[in-house]
Simulated scan of single mutants.
Amino acid sequence: MTSPSLFRDRILPVLTVIFAILVIWHVFVVYLNAPFVRDQAARDNETLSFGQVVERTFVQERPVLPAPHQIAVELWDTTVNKAITSKRSLVYHAWITLSATLLGFAIGTVLGILLAVGIVHNRAMDRSLMPWVIASQTIPILAVAPMIIVVLNAIGVSGVLPKALISTYLSFFPIVVGMVKGLRSPDTLLLDLMHTYNASQNQTFWKLRWPASMPYLFTSLKVAIAISLVGAIVGELPTGAVAGLGARLLSGSYYGQTIQIWAALFMAAGLAAVLVGIVGFAHGRVLKRMGVKP
């Protein structure tokens, strides 16, 4: 029996997938950008070899699909070479989006847990509220976001809160579903045992249901924190915001700056990965303290 290897079992598969993605990406860079190179050469009465066409597809200022190195250069320039207070800095825009994300995530977490507790302990809420919670997620967020922004602006509420509420709208759902499942996960024998001990409903909740729901809660939080970021970005699009990752995407689309768009997308993906990683770390620490294997 072969011994486990960190490189072979975990690192090598990841590197293989990344390499395959990069190869496919470079192929599509040439395929999508080549028509513009040929058209430009034809207007200049210039004949290009295949190698020259390939070379120019990787250095276009406004390519259909940017090359990976162009995105890397843009990321370096807008994160390292720009002051974080500059409106051209992706760090600045990421912080604007992050503030709305965290506020919406916090509100969504509290709301989701409270709704889940009510649904589990009240049969009327279970039958009446749960279907509406599910139905709320059938409405496209792109249709809801402008309405929320317009209504809140009409009553004088602007800034971070409208974007945070859109994040809340997306993030509370996985928490409700996960916590309902978690709070109902204790075995019937354990619930009967608590009744045998004459435990009150509060004691049963805090000593049995709540600890049993922790794995479900943190799994839901990982989904919720990522979707909160999506909500914050979507909330910046219909407002014509001047700051935030959504604003960078919007301005890039207005002026055909595809490299800027892709850099903002990679920044958003990296930010989501960090947030999910933080929740995952907290997940492991909490379960370890509880004596449960994650």
Score class of each variant (00 low, 15 high):
130 M>R: 09
85 T>A: 12
146 P>I: 06
4 P>F: 14
200 S>W: 08
212 A>F: 08
28 F>H: 12
164 A>P: 06
170 L>K: 05
11 I>R: 09
213 S>E: 02
20 A>I: 13
212 A>D: 00
229 L>A: 02
107 I>R: 03
107 I>L: 15
215 P>G: 05
123 R>A: 10
102 L>W: 07
271 L>R: 04
210 W>H: 06
95 W>C: 02
224 A>Q: 01
26 H>Y: 13
160 V>D: 04
59 V>M: 09
232 A>V: 06
293 K>S: 14
210 W>M: 15
133 V>A: 07
214 M>N: 02
182 G>I: 07
265 L>R: 01
244 G>D: 08
275 L>M: 13
73 V>I: 14
108 G>T: 00
58 F>L: 12
157 V>E: 09
200 S>D: 12
266 F>E: 00
266 F>N: 00
93 H>K: 03
294 P>V: 07
98 L>H: 08
268 A>K: 02
51 G>E: 13
133 V>I: 12
17 V>L: 15
202 N>A: 15
156 G>Q: 04
97 T>H: 07
44 D>A: 15
289 R>A: 15
55 E>G: 08
280 G>C: 07
151 V>Q: 07
279 V>L: 05
231 G>K: 06
205 F>G: 08
101 T>A: 01
215 P>M: 05
170 L>E: 05
188 T>S: 13
76 W>Q: 11
216 Y>D: 04
172 F>A: 02
156 G>S: 04
208 L>D: 04
230 V>H: 01
61 E>Q: 13
275 L>T: 01
98 L>P: 08
235 G>A: 14
45 N>S: 14
102 L>N: 03
230 V>I: 15
176 V>N: 06
276 V>L: 08
113 I>S: 00
174 P>N: 03
230 V>P: 06
267 M>I: 11
206 W>N: 04
258 T>W: 00
217 L>F: 13
103 L>K: 01
244 G>M: 10
166 I>W: 05
220 S>L: 01
251 S>E: 12
76 W>V: 11
98 L>D: 01
37 V>Q: 07
166 I>L: 11
285 R>L: 15
109 T>V: 03
128 S>R: 04
99 S>M: 09
44 D>Y: 09
242 V>Y: 09
215 P>S: 05
158 S>Y: 00
101 T>R: 00
143 A>Q: 04
3 S>V: 13
205 F>Q: 06
280 G>V: 05
139 I>L: 15
268 A>Y: 06
169 Y>R: 02
166 I>K: 02
284 G>Y: 13
176 V>F: 11
24 I>V: 15
271 L>W: 06
221 L>M: 14
263 A>P: 00
13 P>Q: 09
248 R>M: 13
79 T>G: 10
276 V>Y: 14
53 V>F: 09
2 T>Y: 13
289 R>Q: 12
115 L>E: 03
257 Q>P: 02
29 V>Q: 10
275 L>Q: 02
260 Q>K: 10
223 V>F: 10
